[in-house]
């Protein structure tokens, strides 16, 4: 199904492309949210990624790796947005906890993100949320797979310490 949609989209079929992208919409949201935090930025990053993916989908050589390719494009868009914000003096990584009408299924997700450090968020999201292994994450983020494994271990430790700190503070 996915492979067929990729091939149709590569042939210029806009409807097939939109159907294809709708499969990954939630994953894209999670990754962008993990990196950017702010809802407005997340929406912008997803839109830019849509446009870039449509422009460059012909570069995808194997449809089975479309998801990896797409997430890479998204991560690069998010990184560029962070760089631009930093250049303009805007503090990045501020996590938007969502509007008061945030859907109930999102609450637990946002609570967890709130206690994770920015660097940990993206690792946890790619590993637990998207299901990539350490090697795939390493390729996506441009780091060694051993660094990813170490980062994940530290993220879990940091999460535990943060929860203990919050507990002690209450």
């Amino acid at each position: 199904m996915t492979a067929r949609l990729v091939r149709q989209a590569q042939a210029g079929d806009g409807d097939a492309f939109v159907s294809l992208m709708s499969q990954y919409k939630i994953d894209m949201y999670k990754v962008a949210k993990g990196i950017l935090g702010n809802e407005t930025d997340v929406a912008d990053a997803m839109s830019e990624t849509l446009l870039l993916a449509f422009e460059h989908i012909k570069d995808v050589r194997r449809p089975e790796y479309f998801k990896t390719w797409l997430i890479r494009v998204l991560i690069n868009v998010c990184k560029d947005m962070l760089k631009e914000k930093k250049r303009c003096g805007v503090t990045d990584h501020i996590l938007d906890r969502g509007a008061p009408d945030t859907a109930q299924e999102n609450v637990e997700f946002l609570e967890l993100l709130a206690v994770l450090e920015p660097k940990s968020r993206i690792l946890m999201m790619l590993y637990y949320g998207i299901g990539f292994n350490s090697r795939q994450i390493a390729a996506l983020l441009g780091m060694k797979s051993s660094t990813v494994r170490t980062g994940l271990r530290r993220a879990r430790e940091q999460l535990k310490m943060e929860l203990e700190r919050q507990e002690a503070g209450t």
Binding site: Y29, T40, V42, A43, N106, E108, L112, Y128
Partner: peptide, 14 residues
């Protein structure tokens, strides 16, 4: 794994 892989609802503006 459950929390991060569960299906979410996109915010309306997004």
């Amino acid at each position: 794994k459950r929390i991060l892989s569960d299906r979410l609802t996109l915010p309306r503006e997004t």
